[in-house]
Simulated scan of single mutants.
Amino acid sequence: MAYDTLLTHVAMDRGCEARLRMTADVARVLGCGEVIGLGAQAPWPFSDERDGTGPDFERLVQSARSDIAVSESAFRDALAAATATASWRSEIGYPSDVVAAHARAADLVLAYRSNEATVSFAYADPEIVLMEAGLPVLFMPASYAEFKADTVLFAWKNTREARRAAALALPVLSKARRVLVASVCHERDLAGVEQELADIARRLSRHGVAATTLAEVGAPGSAGSRLVRIAETDGSELIFAGAYGHSRLREWALGGVTRDLLSARDRFVLLCH
């Protein structure tokens, strides 16, 4: 298994150049053969002509296409020196929906956590992409950081999502120099969690990945923030985890590890749902 084809939505703002540089870094480190840039934007503001055929609506569509053309130019310039093939596709529509639909062409989606990401007509919502793409999603930091992934933290909890993540992240883990499998648990569960970590370490070793383990006792509700602090202390350049082990509604109401990891805007986070 390999991440041969990457897909990323390209939205022009102050962070676009940094995101495209990181995209090129990821393609180089993972040895990808193709990077797909995706231009997507919905007409805005909405026209009063509901059937979408009037001159006002057409003007909005043309404006969106002009913005997408600027995005394409930036994408091609940024990937010009890359060894991977740079291909482009575009569609008028809400970026979150368009990214999920075009994920069919990729092995890995590169996403971002922009301050403007709530502007749904121009930006792909990171949580929607994660829920709907059906692929591993690599979230890039808010500002430029070189993608190395030499040191990786695997945030473990014995859920379906985490068990699946252990397989889907192998193309990254196999390139890492050091892998730490860490879990935050209640003291009464410590012995069982340590056994789980030992099982995961053995599983990874059969794929050529040497991993160390860490079980840390933490208060209920603190797992996400504790895992981020462990990554900081350990110097982990990348965190990966299974996403939304509870229902998404519960994650929204109570916080949850997934939301905490998505808030770690200074490092790369690979999530699988």
Score class of each variant (00 low, 15 high):
M1I: 00
S90R: 11
A198P: 00
V26K: 02
E58D: 11
V228R: 15
S205P: 00
P141S: 05
V129G: 01
A211P: 03
M22I: 00
A167S: 12
V257M: 14
F268A: 05
V98G: 02
S143I: 08
E251K: 11
R202A: 10
R89C: 11
V61F: 02
S183A: 14
L180I: 02
A231F: 08
Q62P: 03
L197V: 02
A215Y: 09
M22Y: 04
A100R: 02
L271T: 06
A64S: 14
F240V: 05
H273W: 09
H102M: 00
V181W: 03
M12N: 06
E132I: 04
L60T: 12
L60Q: 15
R113N: 11
L262D: 09
V109N: 05
F154I: 06
R226Y: 06
P141Q: 10
A27K: 00
V98H: 08
Y3C: 00
A253F: 15
D97T: 07
T213N: 06
R14D: 15
E187Y: 03
L60A: 15
T5L: 01
L153M: 12
A167P: 02
C185M: 04
I230C: 12
A133Y: 04
L214C: 02
R229C: 06
V109Q: 04
D13F: 07
G256H: 13
L261D: 07
T23F: 00
V257Q: 12
H246L: 14
R206S: 07
D234S: 13
A223R: 06
A111M: 01
L271F: 04
G192M: 01
L30S: 01
H207E: 10
L7V: 01
F121I: 00
E251D: 13
G256L: 11
Y244T: 09
A155R: 14
A219D: 13
R164F: 14
V269G: 11
G93L: 04
R267V: 07
A142H: 15
H246A: 13
W88E: 13
S66M: 11
D67A: 14
A241D: 07
V98M: 04
V179H: 09
H207M: 00
V172K: 15
A78Q: 10
G39T: 06
K175N: 07
D4A: 03
G54S: 10
G93W: 08
C16S: 05
R259H: 14
L238S: 09
L20E: 03
V217D: 09
Y112S: 10
L30M: 04
R267L: 05
H207N: 11
V35F: 01
T118K: 10
A182S: 04
A103R: 04
V61H: 07
D67N: 14
L135Q: 12
A182M: 06
L170K: 15
S247I: 06
A201T: 06
L190E: 14
T212M: 03
P55E: 14
I128A: 04
L227P: 12
